[in-house]
Design a protein around this nucleic acid. Sequence first.
DNA 1: TGTACATCAGTGAACGCGCGTTCACTGATGTAC
DNA 2: TGTACATCAGTGAACGCGCGTTCACTGATGTAC
Lengths: 202, 202
Amino acid sequence: MRVTKEQAEQNRAHIVATAARLFRERGYDGVGVAELMATAGFTHGGFYKHFRSKADLMAEASASGLSQIAARSEGLGPAGFVESYVSREHRDRRGDGCTVAALSGDAARQSAEVKTEFAAGIESLLTALQAPSDTPGDADQRAARTMVIDMLAHSVGAIMLSRACPDDSPLAGEILDVCRKEILASLAHGSSDQPAALGPEA
Amino acid sequence: MRVTKEQAEQNRAHIVATAARLFRERGYDGVGVAELMATAGFTHGGFYKHFRSKADLMAEASASGLSQIAARSEGLGPAGFVESYVSREHRDRRGDGCTVAALSGDAARQSAEVKTEFAAGIESLLTALQAPSDTPGDADQRAARTMVIDMLAHSVGAIMLSRACPDDSPLAGEILDVCRKEILASLAHGSSDQPAALGPEA
DNA sequence: TGTACATCAGTGAACGCGCGTTCACTGATGTAC
DNA sequence: TGTACATCAGTGAACGCGCGTTCACTGATGTAC
């Protein structure tokens, strides 16, 4: 039954990736160890050869999911991000979507470990979203960070609010449409005390 | 052991209110029927004299919590709402806070019944947040609604993102400060295609 | 390179526990006369 | 208004079930010589 070190590492990574997806779909409490392992193609007993507890996996799967969205957002630019993020496709595909939008509500009630991974993951996402600046001044950098934080919170709120409504309800669609338009407009207009921060084409 | 009809109704309402608070604090899955009834001051067996199932209570407690935040926001005006909503006090008191911010993440994975209550509750909140208009035209009403939807999603996103970070992390505070300021600024500037919608003093 | 042994990823049964729900029972309330 | 009986909110034990976790076991891999 033993397996090569490389295979074991691959299996472990596969379990983490499977967990990240299942957690996004159903929440941390909505996925059991046995079901997770079965979905990944194993029996549940082996779980503890890879992780000390479900809580440990929750932190690791969160970090994995968060690094995924950061990587996927790299270079999109704020406007490109908003277009794909505040969309029906994203709304309806929770398992394949953003971990922040799928699990922030759950994370708020989790251990310091999980929350620490969220803070680190959000920081990575903020970095990925700031346009690859040509080393601008401190003031510009701070304005860009402000803009990206605000834009991310705005986008996350839009998706989460829409998802809380019935899938086919008019309100669910209206929230997405209104917010996408308003967020894109605010990107074009710039922030509250900077003449013009990163616009859609920055 | 029997109790007057009035007392029974009061007890039922007390259970619903207790559930609304506990669900906000720990999520739907984080509160058991036995613990809920004990917190409300009863034994668990009586639960099914009031509700057909935990799922039924979840829908009812959601509706109750949502009507609470709508009532509490009535007449505040958008700027007043944002000041109190996007704050550390709200962030740190989940049980006493807004049901939308506390349970939207969970609601996304719940039954159509719960989601329907959320859509209805959000509509009430939107109505409560629109300034008591002096019967303006259709265009103004639509602009006001657009503004309030956008502002609510923005505020909810700010609180949820902040709550996903460790309580004492710099990022948790930064998100609130940045977003409160930006949302208030956007209220002052007006929406994307209306010259001036409801400002902070509307 | 070949042999002997230790390691350990994966298996599947078993554990205690808390969950949502059911049920027989109690006894004050509500109702019919 | 007073009496007899039905109702039903609340009690607390019990149910089956799925959870996270443990454990003895397997057998191919990795290592020491």
